[in-house]
């Protein structure tokens, strides 16, 4: 009998706690979070990680030159496809409706220009094979060292893309 009072209080407290969102109209977060990866971002990550793996496997002597070159080309193409999709997603997500002079869903011109410049640099870097495997910084063609972190970069013109100081992938 002595447990009845605390039991009832407990039951009421629990019911209030559980029903409160419905009564008060308070809602759980239901939207996609900016911090979460989209499918295209995921596929891009997968491709870039695969590039890192290929680098590591090549430098660890697990891949020969021919396979290394072929795989790098294939995975780079995959990464570019994913980045194209991601670009489209990003533009759609950052479009601000209602700005005068622009259609609904179109992003601000400066944002579009900055993004396109960044994507163009990334594309060029992936194609040229000078994306830094240490920090991910895309470097201009012909770079021997990463402009961001100073790590050695694959020597341009070399068929195997031998690194100046190698690369420590870890895939």
């Amino acid at each position: 009998m002595s447990a009845l009072v605390p039991g009832v209080i407990l039951a009421v407290a629990m019911v209030v706690f559980v029903l409160h969102p419905i009564v008060s109209g308070r809602e759980a977060h239901m939207e996609w979070d900016e911090e979460e990866l989209t499918e295209a971002q995921h596929r891009r990550n997968v491709a870039l990680l695969a590039l890192r793996d290929v680098e590591y496997d090549f430098h660890a002597g697990k891949l020969d030159t021919t396979d290394y070159g072929r795989l790098k080309q294939e995975i780079s193409a995959e990464a570019l496809r994913a980045i194209d999709e991601e670009e489209a997603e990003w533009l759609a997500r950052h479009a601000e409706p209602g700005d005068p002079g622009r259609e609904e869903g179109e992003p601000p011109p400066e944002a579009r220009a900055a993004l396109e410049a960044e994507i163009a640099a990334l594309r060029d870097s992936i194609r040229a094979g000078v994306i830094c495997s240490q920090c991910g910084n895309p470097n201009p063609k012909g770079s021997r060292y990463c402009g961001d972190c100073g790590s050695g970069l694959p020597v341009q013109g070399s068929p195997t893309g031998h690194a100046v100081r190698g690369s420590v992938g870890s895939g």
Partner: peptide, 21 residues
């Protein structure tokens, strides 16, 4: 232990850089 570029609004490029690190 990586050096990520500080971008307040991440873009595909900055994300790609982060991923490769």
């Amino acid at each position: 232990g990586s050096r990520r570029q500080d971008t307040s609004t991440p873009t595909p490029r900055s994300d790609a850089a982060a991923t490769l690190g």
